[in-house]
């Protein structure tokens, strides 16, 4: 979707705060939101790209103006309500309508460290179909537009690039956002910065994106 999240190359955001305090969390609620995201249950059938899409669907003014982990709260809450894990009324009241259920047994930090290792989720899948492109091939990205989730950013649509690396077949993000685990071949594609931005001053500079095969066509 052409949402506010698709920020690559947008202008007017001004300088970067390079002197922020170097701490993992800037407020307690940030840490708790991150932790809820890591360990909360009630997410049968969710996929990473469905969750990303739920975040992209936040009102664009909220998306830009509200704090980063606040948008996680809203994305998780919307996805939970969509899944009937709880209702809109329950989150507004901050109270379950049912008698509280015993929570799962607590785990300690040592167990958390083991759980983080088990979060090394792989997205590569076998695919019998031969890859369409080889390293060194010239390609163009398609002029794809969709109201759904996609990982082809607007700034690289309809642009020439070169296949820099092939990574096998990974679950296709656009399908993943609809609950499918259909794989596609995926490549790192190198773009000359000067092909993306007329004002790019250095002709050596390049931008690399990891793109699925159906985003690409032979040049």
């Amino acid at each position: 979707m052409d949402g506010m999240h698709d920020l690559g190359g947008k202008q007017g955001f001004g300088p970067i705060d390079v002197n922020e305090t170097d701490v993992p969390f800037h407020a307690d609620w940030e840490g708790r939101m991150w932790a809820i995201a890591q360990c909360g249950g009630g997410r049968d059938g969710w996929t990473i790209d469905w969750w990303r899409h739920c975040r992209e669907l936040i009102d664009p003014v909220d998306y830009l103006a509200r704090p980063y982990f606040d948008s996680w709260m809203q994305a998780y809450t919307a996805a939970y309500i969509d899944s009937d894990t709880f209702t809109l009324e329950e989150i507004i009241k901050a109270k379950s309508d049912q008698t509280p259920v015993e929570p799962p047994e607590a785990i300690d930090t040592q167990q958390v460290l083991k759980d983080i290792q088990s979060q090394a989720t792989r997205f590569d899948r076998p695919l019998a179909q031969t890859p369409q492109f080889e390293v060194g091939d010239c390609v163009n990205t398609k002029q794809l537009t969709t109201s759904h989730h996609t990982r082809l950013p607007a700034y690289t649509r309809g642009k020439p690039g070169i296949i820099h690396a092939y990574h096998g077949a990974h679950i296709f993000a656009d399908a993943c956002a609809k609950g499918s685990d259909r794989p596609e071949h995926i490549y790192s594609v190198a773009f000359n910065a000067s092909d993306l931005w007329q004002e790019s001053q250095n002709r050596k500079d390049r931008v690399f994106l990891d793109l699925w095969e159906s985003y690409l066509e032979p040049a």
Partner: peptide
């Protein structure tokens, strides 16, 4: 709401925050 639904334990949340801190 997640605690009352039995989907998360607040002590586990503490442990995750500590691990990443």
């Amino acid at each position: 709401v997640l605690v009352e639904k039995g989907l998360v334990n607040s002590q586990t949340i503490d442990a995750w925050v500590e691990a990443y801190s």
